[in-house]
Design a protein around this nucleic acid. Structure first.
Lengths: 301, 301
DNA sequence: TGAAGGTCATAGGTAAATCCGATCCCGACG
DNA sequence: CGTCGGGATCGGATTTACCTATGACCTTCA
C-alpha cells in the first residue's frame, strides 16, 4: 500500500554509504534485505532512485537525490517523535496536568506547586480546578492524570490515596455568640442561620450531615464560592461548616472569622491523591505525588 | 526495535474516532489488529496513550494527546514524501536536469527550452553544459538524467537516439580565399592555417579527420571556446571545421563568417538524446525528449 | 434485574512479509 | 582472461500481521 519507515531508513543508509552491502553492514542486516527494500521503493514510486555502477556501488539519480533530502528529514521527524514519546512517560521534563478540588485549591496547591517547582524545575504544571465530580470526570476524560481531592464520588476504577484527614469545622464570625465555645455540636449550630456552600456535591453532603441526625438548619444564604462563603459568615449572615481550614483567619475583605471543631462523630473528610486505576502513572505524576505526600503529610492544612 | 508508520496511522485513527472498532472500520482492518498496534505502541513507549472506557470507546491521556499532535504531523510529513516521491517519476511538475554538449548548447538549447517551457510550464529545467566526456560522466553520476550531445564516447550502458545529422562544415572569414567555393575538400583547407577547437574530445577528433587522410593542417591557434573560435576565424587567423552550424553568420564582435560544406566522405556527426540504458526515464524526461525530437527533427540547426 | 448490544482484549491459526545464506551475474581491474 | 567486488535473485526458515472466534466487561433498555 505505501512505504515503510524501515525502507526509508535503508534507503538513506544506502544513499549515505553509496553501497548496498555497506549499508547492510551499518544496519546489521543482510545485503539482500537492503536490496529488496530499495527495489520495492523504486517499484512503489515508479522511479529509479539509484544508478548501479557494477562492482562499485551506486549513486543517486536526480530523483533519488530529491527523495534523499525528504527522506532524511522524515527520519529526523520520526526520531523526534520517538524521543518525545518515550519522554512522555519517563522524563522529568515537559508538562503535567493536575486536577484539584476547587474549594481547597487555593489553600494547598500554592504550597505543593512551589515545592514541586523547586524539586522539578523542568516540569511545568497546569492546574485544573473543578468541583468533586468535575475532578473525577476530568480524570476519566484524560484532562489530567492526577488530582488532589476528597474521597467522594469514588468508583471502582479510581485509586485514592488519603493524605490528610480533615475534620469538620464550624466557621463563625469572630463576634458570633458561639465563637466563645472551644467545640461545637451540630445541634447547637442549628439554632443559628446557616450559610451553605452550593456546589454540586458539597451541598448535598453538608445538608446530609444535619439531616442524618434529624436536624434541619435554616439556610440564610448559599454561594458556590468558598471565599464569598467566608465573607458572608464574617459579615454576620450565619455560620458555615467546612472541612478545609485555611491558615488565614481573615476574609478577602479583611474581616476575621474563627474555626471551631465540631464534636459530633463525623467521619473526617479525607484529602488525598486520586488517579485512574488502570492507567500507568508517568514519572512526572509519580514525582508530583511524592512531593504532595511530603508536603501535606508533614504539614497538613 | 522502533515504531512503525502503520502503528502511527492506527493510533491517529483511534484518537480521531475515539474507538478502536470504528478506527478498524475506517482503516478497513479488523479491530484486534488495531488493538494490537496500540498496545504495542504503549508498550514501546512505556506510556498509556488511551483511557479505556468499557463498552464506550476510549479517550486520550494527556500523554496520548501530546503524542497525537506529533503523530499527525509525522503522518502529514510521510504523506508529503509519498506525494513527492511518486511525483518524482510521474508528474509533469518539478525540476528536470538536462546535460548538453557545450559547443552547441547555445545554438540548440534556447529553442528547445523555449518550446519545452511552452508545453510544460510547471517544469523548471536546469541545464548542465560539459564537454562530451563530461556529459557522459554527468549522466553516470546522476547529475542529469538526459542529455543532448554527439554520439561520441558512447559505451554499452548508454542509449543514444540520433536526432539530427550534422555534416562537417568549414568555417571561413567572408573574405577568405576559399569563401568563393560552394564546397571544400580537406586537402584544399590544409593549404591555409587552421584554428582548432581545443576541448578534451573535439581536439583529437578534428585532428584525426585530417590525419586519417594523410593531411597535416598547420594549427595557427587553439581555443576551448566556440565563440572565440569564430572570432579568430573572422579576424583572419585561419579556417576551422565544425559540425554545429549556428543560424547567425556573425560573430559576437559583429564580423561575418561563412559556412561551406566539406565534400570529403566524412560521417556526419549525430546530434541526439543520450541517457542511461538501465534507468527508467521519468515522465518529465520523456516529455523533454518528445519536445527535442519535434523541435530538432523538423528544423535542424 | 436480566437481557441485549456494544466495546476492548486475548487466543489460535493462517497468510504474508522479512530476513538470511547461497548463488548468480556482471562490470572493473590486474 | 581470470579474479574480485558488489548487486540481484532464489529458496527456505522465521517472524510478523492479520483475521475469526471468543471472553470479559460495561451500558442500556425492557
Amino acid at each position: 500500500m505505501t512505504f515503510t519507515l524501515k525502507q526509508i531508513r535503508y534507503f538513506v543508509a544506502v544513499a549515505e554509504t553509496g553501497s548496498i552491502t555497506e549499508a547492510g553492514r551499518r544496519l546489521h542486516i543482510s545485503q539482500p534485505s537492503v536490496s529488496a527494500a530499495i527495489a520495492e521503493l523504486e517499484d512503489r514510486f515508479k522511479v529509479d532512485l539509484f544508478i548501479r555502477h557494477h562492482a562499485q556501488g551506486l549513486s543517486l539519480t536526480p530523483a533519488g537525490a530529491r527523495l534523499f533530502k525528504d527522506a532524511r528529514s522524515l527520519l529526523d521527524h520520526a526520531e523526534e517523535l520517538r524521543q518525545g514519546a518515550v519522554g512522555l512517560g519517563q522524563s522529568l521534563e515537559g508538562e503535567l496536568h493536575v486536577g484539584c478540588f476547587q474549594t481547597f485549591a487555593p489553600i494547598v496547591m500554592p504550597r505543593v506547586i512551589r515545592a514541586f517547582a523547586a524539586a522539578h524545575p523542568a516540569i511545568v504544571i497546569t492546574l485544573h480546578e473543578h468541583h468533586v465530580q468535575g475532578v473525577v470526570d476530568g480524570l476519566a476524560a484524560g484532562q489530567f492524570e492526577l488530582a488532589l481531592t476528597y474521597d467522594l464520588n469514588l468508583t471502582e476504577d479510581l485509586a485514592f490515596e488519603p493524605l490528610v484527614a480533615m475534620p469538620l469545622h464550624a466557621v463563625l464570625a469572630r463576634n458570633h455568640r458561639l465563637a466563645r465555645e472551644k467545640e461545637l455540636s451540630l445541634e447547637q449550630l442549628t439554632h443559628y442561620p446557616m450559610v451553605l456552600l452550593n456546589l454540586p456535591q458539597s451541598r448535598d453532603y453538608f445538608l446530609s450531615l444535619f439531616s442524618s441526625r434529624g436536624l434541619r438548619p435554616r439556610i440564610a444564604q448559599e454561594t458556590p464560592s468558598f471565599e464569598t462563603l467566608r465573607g458572608l459568615v464574617a459579615s454576620g449572615d450565619g455560620f458555615a461548616v467546612m472541612h478545609s481550614r485555611p491558615a488565614s483567619q481573615q476574609t478577602l475583605d479583611g474581616r476575621p472569622v474563627v474555626y471551631r471543631p465540631v464534636k459530633d462523630k463525623i467521619r473526617p473528610q479525607s484529602l488525598g491523591l486520586l488517579r485512574l486505576m488502570r492507567i500507568r502513572p508517568t514519572r512526572r505524576s509519580e514525582a508530583f505525588a511524592a512531593v504532595a505526600r511530603a508536603e501535606l503529610r508533614q504539614n497538613p492544612a
